[in-house]
Design a protein around this nucleic acid. Structure first.
Lengths: 337, 337
DNA sequence: GCTTCGCGTCGAAGCGCTTCGAAGAGGAGC
DNA sequence: GCTCCTCTTCGAAGCGCTTCGACGCGAAGC
C-alpha cells in the first residue's frame, strides 16, 4: 500500500501538500493539485483510516445502534438501516453496526475508543437507559424515536400522536362512529415504547374530540391470536365499522381473518393501517394507510448528525414528521341502511 | 480521555508494560498485571482504536456487505446481520455495514483504507463481480452463498440443492406423484441467484430420480400475482397434490389464495415451504418446511473469518449446511380415493 | 526602494499505540 | 566465584497522517 509519502515523492511535493490537496484546508495552486491528484490515481493511494483518525481525531464513521428485539417489525428496521448507510456514504462516512445487547456500555466502548464520530440510536423507549449515557457522552447523537426526556439530544420520528389522530379523522369523515384500534402485543406497551403509546394517545384524543367511541386491543402476530382478538372485538363491539391497525406483522393475516369471520372490507368494515407503504399496497385489499417513512427518517437522522459534526450546529430538538394518509380500497363511507 | 501513558504513570510502569498486559503477548508478573489492570479501571482507560490500528495494522473490525435489493427477503437478511454482529462481538470485533451500491469499489475502499480486517459478503450471485475483487484483495473473506467459481474464497450456505431434493422426497414418501415448485419472481433467476437455481436443480433431479412429474412456476409477492400463478398451476396441472414454496414473501398470501380457490391444506394439497422457522410456524396452517438457518450461517461465517484472521488457517472451501425438514400441519399422505 | 501582505509550500512535531531489542535482577550450574 | 539463563520490565522507534508555524516569493502600497 502506498503512503502519503510515496505520493508526495511521486508528485515532487511534501507530504503536507498532499494532505492539503486531499482535505482542501489550505489553498493549493491548480498546477500542483493536479499533479498530486494524478499521482494519487496512478499509485492507487488510499489514506490509512487509522492514521487519519489518530492525527485528526475524526474517524468518518458513525455508529448505528439497532434493537435486537423480535417484536420490532423487521422490514422497517431494515429500511432505516439501509437509508442511514446510504445517506452516511453520501457524506463520506461509514456506519458501524451495533446491536443493543451490549446496552449502554456498548455505546461507551465505541466512543471512548474513538471508533466513531457520532451515533444514531434506533427504537428509543420512553424511559431509555441509553439516553442519559448518550447525553453525557458529548458526541453528536440522534435518536430515532422520542423518549420521555430527550435532554439535549436530537430526536426524529413520525408524529405518532398525529398519526393516531389522522386515522380517526379519516374514518370519522367517512361517517364511522365506532372504531377499534388493533395494536401491538401487550409487552410492547408495557415496555414503554413511545411510538405505540403516542399512537394510542392520538387515537383516544381524536375520538374524544369527535365524540366517538374508542377501544384499544393489543394483539399478537399469529393467525390464531389475530383471530381471537378480532372475535372478541366483534363480540364486545358489534357496532364497530372502523378498524385502525397499528401492528405490521398482523396486517397480512388480518384481512384473511376478517374474511373468515364474514366481514367484507370495506363494505362492512373500513380498515386503516399504520405500516410501510409496500405492506399496504401488497395486501389482498390494498390498505388505506399512514406509511411509516423509514427512509426519510433515516436520512434526516444522518443529516442532523452531519450538521452537528460539521458546524457544531445545535439541531433544534425533535423533528416530528407529519403523517400522510393514503386512501386505498380498504376504507369507504359507512353505509347507513 | 486517558492515554496509555496516563495508565503507565498511574501504575508506575512503562507504557509498553501496559500494552503487554492488555495484549498478553509477553508474560507479566501477577503483581504488576493487577496493578495495571486496576489503574485501567480506575482511570476508565479505553485504547484509541485508530492508534491501535496504525501501530498494529489490525482494526478489529470486519465488514458486512448487505445487498440492497428489494427482492431479497428482509427478515432473513436481518437475522444474518444480527447473528454476524453478535458473533463478531463475541470475538472482540465490530462490524462495519456496507451496502452493495458502491459495488466492488466499495470493498476496495474499505480494505485499502485499512478500515477492516476481513469481509463477509452476503447474497452472492453465481457470477458475482465482487468475487474476483475479493479474491485478489487478499484479506480474509467469507461469502454467504456460493458463486459459480469461488476461487480461494470460503463459502457458507444452506445446501439448497439438497433442500430441493429433500422437499421432493418428503412429498414422495407421502405418496404424492405430481408436484409443483412455486419459486421466486423471474428476475431472481435471471440474475443468476445461486440458491434459487440450486433449489430448482435439486427439485428437478429428485423428481427425475423418483419418476415424478415436476414443474416450476416463478411467482411474485402480491396477492394478485399469487392468485394468478396458482390459478395457472391448477389449470395446467389438475392432478397436482404437492406444492413446494420457495418464496418467503408469498408464503403468507398463499394459504389465503388456496382457500379462495377451494383447496384444503393438507386434505387436497400438501404444502412444503423453504423459509425461516418463524414464518412457517406462524402461518394459518403451520407449514412443513425446511428452515433457512440464517443465524447458524452468520455465526459460521464469523467463525471462519476469525479462523483465517487468527491463525491464517485456510478454511476448507465451502461449507454447505444440511437441510432439516420439519413436518407440520400442511403436509399429509395423499388420499387415494 | 523598502515594507507589507498573501499565496503556495515545506518541515517538524505529535496523535496513541505496538513491538523489538536490550537491560537488570536473580537463580542454577560448574 | 563466575558464567549462563530465564523472567520481567523498559526505552525507543515507528506506524501514516494532520496541522501549525514559518519561509520564500511576487505583487501591492507608500
Amino acid at each position: 500500500m502506498p503512503t502519503i509519502a510515496d505520493v508526495a515523492r511521486h508528485a515532487q511535493v511534501s507530504p503536507s501538500t498532499v494532505s492539503y490537496v486531499l482535505s482542501g484546508k489550505r489553498s493549493i495552486s491548480e498546477d500542483t493539485r493536479e499533479r498530486v491528484q494524478s499521482s494519487i490515481r496512478e499509485l492507487g493511494y488510499h489514506p490509512h483510516a487509522g492514521a487519519r483518525a489518530l492525527a485528526s481525531s475524526r474517524t468518518s464513521v458513525i455508529a448505528l445502534v439497532l434493537p435486537l428485539r423480535s417484536d420490532m417489525y423487521v422490514p422497517v428496521l431494515m429500511q432505516f438501516a439501509v437509508s442511514v448507510v446510504t445517506a452516511a456514504r453520501a457524506h463520506g462516512h461509514d456506519v458501524l453496526l451495533l446491536t443493543n445487547d451490549e446496552g449502554p456500555e456498548g455505546l461507551r466502548r465505541v466512543t471512548d475508543g474513538a471508533q466513531v464520530d457520532a451515533l444514531i440510536v434506533m427504537d428509543v423507549e420512553l424511559d431509555d437507559p441509553r439516553v442519559p449515557v448518550l447525553d453525557e457522552l458529548g458526541l453528536p447523537a440522534v435518536l430515532i424515536g422520542v423518549p420521555a426526556d430527550p435532554g439535549r439530544l436530537t430526536c426524529i420520528d413520525l408524529d405518532f400522536s398525529a398519526t393516531g389522530r389522522c386515522c380517526v379523522e379519516h374514518l370519522a369523515e367517512l361517517g364511522h362512529r365506532e372504531t377499534v384500534l388493533i395494536g401491538h402485543p401487550g409487552p410492547v406497551y408495557q415496555r414503554g415504547t413511545g411510538f405505540a403509546q403516542r399512537t394510542i394517545e392520538g387515537y383516544r384524543e381524536a375520538s374524544l374530540d369527535r365524540g366517538l367511541d374508542s377501544a384499544v386491543y393489543p394483539c399478537g402476530h399469529s393467525y390464531d391470536e389475530v383471530h381471537a382478538v378480532l372475535s372478541r372485538v366483534f363480540a364486545e363491539h358489534p357496532e364497530v365499522t372502523g378498524l385502525i391497525v397499528h401492528n405490521e406483522p398482523a396486517q397480512g393475516v388480518l384481512l384473511d381473518v376478517l374474511r373468515r369471520l364474514g366481514k367484507r372490507v370495506p363494505e362492512d368494515l373500513s380498515v386503516v393501517a399504520i405500516c410501510p407503504e409496500g405492506t399496504a399496497e401488497a395486501a389482498s385489499t390494498p390498505l388505506s394507510a399512514v406509511p411509516i417513512p423509514a427512509s426519510a427518517i433515516g436520512q434526516r437522522a444522518v443529516e442532523a448528525v452531519m450538521g452537528k459534526l460539521v458546524e457544531a450546529r445545535a439541531e433544534d430538538g425533535s423533528t416530528l414528521l407529519t403523517p400522510q394518509l393514503t386512501v386505498r380500497a380498504s376504507s369507504a363511507a359507512v353505509r347507513r341502511d
